[in-house]
Computed example of a mutant assay.
Amino acid sequence: MIHTLEADGIQLDFGLRSILSDVYIKCETGKITGLLGRNGQGKTCLMNVILGTLNSSINSVRFDGNMVRNASKRPDLLLYLPQFNFIPKTLTVKKVMDDFQLSPTEFERRFPEFNSRYDLKVNQLSGGQWRTLELYIIVKTPSLFAMLDEPFTHLNPIQIDNIKEFLVEEKANKGMLITDHMYSHLLDISDSVYLLKDGKTHQAKTLDDLDRLGYVRLDAGR
């Protein structure tokens, strides 16, 4: 069965400044939905409105057509990877895996760089390893959907390639809404892409679409 997450009718203002005014976004299980936009356009705000941790004057967030006001309290529906590190730095990798009831063996098979690192504290990992661990937890913990905010932060090129492969594999198990400034990687793995600009969402399937919408500038002779 295909499940859906939809958000529309969102009105978010900070004082006299309108952040979100005409948004529609749809995610489906089995697919990756990309969300692009320049700094300050409201991508993280939109995710937090969907999550229910940021109040907007008007919004409609629906799972399978049913309104959900505070998805942050429904981890069976939605999990969120924030931009900042959320795993306490003093925990060991083993403790984190145990707390989330995830298999260390499967984790190590997918990311061999963690071999023999289970006794290390999280703050003893590299920034990329810390991010990989957090992303793995959000994606592998059972839920219908996951929102990933800047998942490629702190990752080196090899780690990015591994994470992209992992996300494409795991989309069979849940729908994903991903935002990242590394738009080429997002285009590589996304089944659909929205660009958030001037408070509105626009569908953008190709680099030409992003050029037309003013997000990127392509060479005139391309």
Rank of each mutant, 00 (worst) to 15 (best):
residue 20 L to V: 08
residue 134 E to H: 02
residue 93 V to W: 05
residue 116 S to Y: 06
residue 132 T to D: 02
residue 167 L to Y: 09
residue 193 V to C: 13
residue 36 L to K: 07
residue 40 G to N: 08
residue 176 M to H: 06
residue 144 L to M: 14
residue 128 G to M: 04
residue 179 T to A: 11
residue 131 R to D: 02
residue 7 A to F: 02
residue 121 K to A: 07
residue 184 S to F: 03
residue 218 L to H: 04
residue 14 F to H: 14
residue 135 L to V: 15
residue 209 D to N: 14
residue 54 L to H: 00
residue 136 Y to W: 12
residue 2 I to Q: 13
residue 13 D to F: 10
residue 141 T to W: 03
residue 154 H to E: 12
residue 82 P to F: 03
residue 57 S to R: 14
residue 68 V to D: 02
residue 130 W to Q: 15
residue 187 L to P: 07
residue 201 T to R: 09
residue 67 M to E: 14
residue 152 F to R: 06
residue 210 L to R: 09
residue 100 F to R: 09
residue 96 V to K: 08
residue 29 T to A: 06
residue 156 N to P: 03
residue 10 I to L: 12
residue 199 G to T: 02
residue 96 V to S: 07
residue 90 T to M: 11
residue 144 L to N: 04
residue 67 M to T: 12
residue 112 P to Y: 06
residue 115 N to P: 00
residue 106 E to Y: 08
residue 187 L to G: 03
residue 44 T to L: 10
residue 73 K to I: 00
residue 6 E to A: 12
residue 195 L to I: 05
residue 75 P to V: 04
residue 35 L to Q: 08
residue 30 G to R: 09
residue 214 G to E: 07
residue 131 R to K: 15
residue 171 K to P: 05
residue 30 G to E: 12
residue 99 D to L: 12
residue 120 L to Y: 14
residue 129 Q to N: 11
residue 12 L to T: 05
residue 120 L to H: 13
residue 112 P to K: 10
residue 63 F to P: 00
residue 98 D to G: 04
residue 180 D to E: 11
residue 114 F to S: 07
residue 210 L to V: 11
residue 219 D to W: 00
residue 181 H to G: 01
residue 153 T to A: 15
residue 143 S to A: 15
residue 158 I to E: 13
residue 216 V to C: 06
residue 197 K to I: 00
residue 61 V to Q: 03
residue 207 L to V: 03
residue 174 K to Y: 02
residue 139 V to W: 03
residue 209 D to Y: 07
residue 17 R to I: 12
residue 5 L to P: 05
residue 55 N to K: 13
residue 116 S to Q: 14
residue 166 F to G: 10
residue 161 D to A: 14
residue 163 I to E: 06
residue 112 P to M: 04
residue 113 E to T: 13
residue 162 N to G: 00
residue 72 S to F: 15
residue 208 D to N: 13
residue 9 G to T: 00
residue 70 N to R: 15
residue 115 N to K: 15
residue 69 R to I: 04
residue 134 E to C: 01
residue 1 M to F: 04
residue 146 A to T: 04
residue 116 S to T: 08
residue 25 I to D: 04
residue 203 Q to M: 10
residue 85 N to F: 13
residue 157 P to N: 05
residue 40 G to C: 03
residue 127 G to W: 07
residue 24 Y to K: 13
residue 218 L to F: 05
residue 182 M to V: 03
residue 196 L to C: 04
residue 75 P to L: 09
residue 95 K to Q: 15
residue 75 P to Y: 05
residue 136 Y to D: 06
residue 23 V to S: 07
residue 198 D to N: 15
residue 134 E to Y: 01
residue 44 T to G: 11
residue 123 N to R: 11
residue 200 K to M: 12
residue 60 S to H: 13
residue 37 G to M: 01
residue 22 D to G: 02
residue 165 E to H: 14
residue 100 F to E: 08
residue 119 D to E: 13
residue 79 L to A: 06
residue 178 I to G: 05
residue 167 L to D: 06
residue 43 K to C: 07
residue 25 I to W: 05
residue 18 S to E: 13
residue 114 F to R: 09
